[in-house]
């Protein structure tokens, strides 16, 4: 059947929520009439937006040199005012630290989670230029393949990763959670991990891993600290 003008059933909820202006001047009319208007699109007004820091004197431009500590090592870096910590880690140091992932790049998902002076932070929401003298810990600074941090060991044991893209962020947030609140109960752990998103649906195993790691960090061992439900 080829019938583009066939009526659609009315009065039913459309499959997409669609915003539409039914009365008053439309936004397009406001812009000057659709057929005559040329929308001139420059996708943003200027390249590179610097944060005003009046107390420090003039507006920052170009590259700024600063020294910070990354995973225990003093690093001197050059960054633009707009360079995020995430971009610094992933693109401006050699070798790059790519454990922190860029997913949303606006503080929604936690895949770039790091610790700054032992506080959890989104690297994508942190300007590198503000980090002079600060101490950054990334997932690479927690444990190594041969010597895993208890949280990392528990994540392995409980299969708390599927595709693995959110995993470094979850590991860092879990470490931060358990360092700050070693006694956190399961609901508090969820609260503290709620700044991280996973799309594969690994959450139940992440929570189990966090509880196991909590036991390990309190002095237990992996075996003694907790066991998976329904273990064969």
């Amino acid at each position: 059947m080829d019938n583009p003008s066939a009526p659609l059933p009315s009065g039913q909820s459309p499959p997409d929520r669609i915003s539409s202006e039914s009365s008053g001047p439309s936004r397009r009319a406001f812009l000057g009439g659709s057929s005559a208007a040329l929308a001139s699109t420059t996708l943003a007004s200027s390249a590179g937006v610097a944060r005003a820091r009046p107390q420090d004197g003039p507006r920052l431009t170009g590259l700024s040199k600063l020294t910070l500590t990354i995973n225990g090592e003093k690093r001197s870096v050059e960054v633009e005012p707009r360079t995020t910590l995430l971009s610094l880690l992933r693109h401006r140091i050699d070798p790059p630290l790519t454990g922190a992932k860029e997913v949303c790049d606006r503080g929604n998902c936690g895949a770039c989670s790091v610790m700054i002076d032992d506080q959890p932070a989104y690297a994508c929401m942190t300007l590198a230029v503000d980090l002079a003298g600060r101490e950054v810990r990334t997932v690479e600074g927690l444990g190594t393949l041969d010597d895993l941090h208890p949280v990392q060991a528990a994540f392995c044991e409980h299969d708390a990763s599927m595709c693995g893209f959110c995993t470094p962020g979850f590991v860092v947030s879990t470490v931060a959670c358990l360092e700050q609140e070693p006694e956190a109960d399961p609901s508090r752990i969820r609260e503290l991990l709620s700044g991280n998103l996973c799309r594969c649906g690994t959450y139940p195993h992440v929570f189990a891993a966090a509880e196991t790691a909590q036991g390990m960090m309190a002095g237990g061992t992996l075996d003694a600290a907790g066991s998976r439900e329904d273990k064969r």
């Binding site: 790519t98 690479e140 393949l145 994540f155 392995c156 044991e157 990763s161 693995g164």
Partner: peptide
């Protein structure tokens, strides 16, 4: 039940994705 073989690469951030 056993852990996946690449779990340690994923939890340490050493697993390299295209993105990386």
């Amino acid at each position: 039940e056993y852990p996946r073989v690449d779990a340690s690469a994923k939890v340490t951030g050493s697993a390299r994705f295209s993105h990386d």
